[in-house]
């Protein structure tokens, strides 16, 4: 690894000041950043440790306002939080499958999002849940919907000096359920061949709304609006689900690589969307 300088920020403003000159990257859990420094995929002169900033460590849930999740909160603190675990089982799906136990001791959902890997496991479920990214920068704060956050492999809307502070996730409504389902050849410690985040709201045996998003099948996590929209007003049954799954399959734009062929990955998108919807529907039915 080349020489780097290390700075620790204790406030958002301090972090923004350290980042705005360029050549600096925020360090949260480091599970992607440190690897990327070592293989020189990233080449900053300075890393700015943001784990000392109160706003980035926030986990606050309110049944009416929803969840504010600091960008540096490690995965284990999410699934160990009983209120969050109960309200957002879809978020818990990803917090407990990113890496393994040790990785979950450091890795954060915010880091997973800003790393912007096409395979980032948390991103489809954040999109499905309608999460908003709260960004601070030299020109103040702004909010970006997570589906608009990633712009390419490893690329995001963050401009020089900007920092992801937290994620805001709307409160779950009655009859809602969400799920993240990925396909990996091993049972843990693997990169998704394909992944699907889904959320549904059910009402009187029909879909009131639905959001479906895919991982690992495009240069960025893919929000497939049409797949969710196709469910709205439709009865909760296999035929409706099959239509949405077919749209998800057709929307996927994977490449053939060591993780799978185009044909196989598109097929998986259909399977996972169907399976994911079925789990989300079960969760929604329990969420009275």
């Amino acid at each position: 690894m080349k020489w780097i300088d290390y700075a620790s920020a204790s406030s958002v403003q301090e972090a923004v000041d350290l980042l705005k000159g360029g050549g600096a990257r925020p360090l949260a859990g480091g599970t992607d950043l440190i690897v990327n420094l070592r293989i020189r995929r990233l080449d900053p002169d300075t890393v700015v440790d943001v784990k000392g900033i109160p706003e980035l460590n926030e986990v606050s849930y309110d049944a009416s306002k929803g969840l504010t999740l600091g960008a540096a909160v490690p995965c284990y603190k999410i699934y160990n939080n009983k209120a969050v675990a109960k309200a957002y089982p879809g978020l818990i799906d990803v917090a407990s499958l990113i890496g393994g136990t040790q990785i979950q001791g450091r890795a954060s959902i915010g880091g997973n999002l800003t790393n912007a890997a096409p395979s980032g496991d948390s991103i489809p479920v954040l999109i499905a849940l309608g999460a908003i990214a709260n960004i601070a920068g030299p020109n103040g704060t702004r909010q970006v919907a997570v589906e608009d956050f990633c712009t390419g492999p490893g690329k995001t809307v963050l401009k020089q000096g900007e920092l992801l502070v937290s994620l805001s996730i709307p409160a779950p409504v009655k009859g809602s359920g969400a799920q993240y389902m990925r396909f990996i050849p091993r049972n843990e410690m693997d990169i998704a061949v394909a992944g699907v985040g889904v959320s549904v709201v059910l009402e009187n045996g029909t879909f009131k709304s639905a959001r479906i998003s895919l991982a690992s099948v495009a240069p960025t996590p893919l929000f497939v609006k049409a797949a969710g929209d196709a469910l709205v007003g439709k009865p909760v049954n296999d035929a409706s689900i099959a239509v949405a799954a077919g749209i998800a399959r057709d929307a996927a734009k994977p490449i053939t690589d060591m993780r799978g062929t185009i044909e196989y990955r598109k097929h998986l998108c259909e399977v996972l969307t169907r399976r994911g919807l079925n789990v989300a529907i079960e969760r929604a039915k329990e969420n009275k």
């Binding site: 859990g29 480091g30 440190i34 690897v35 890393v47 490690p74 040790q102 990785i103 001791g105």
Partner: peptide
């Protein structure tokens, strides 16, 4: 208090 891989900590 939490296990981590020390290769991914500075």
């Amino acid at each position: 208090g939490r296990i981590v891989t020390s290769c991914l900590v500075l």
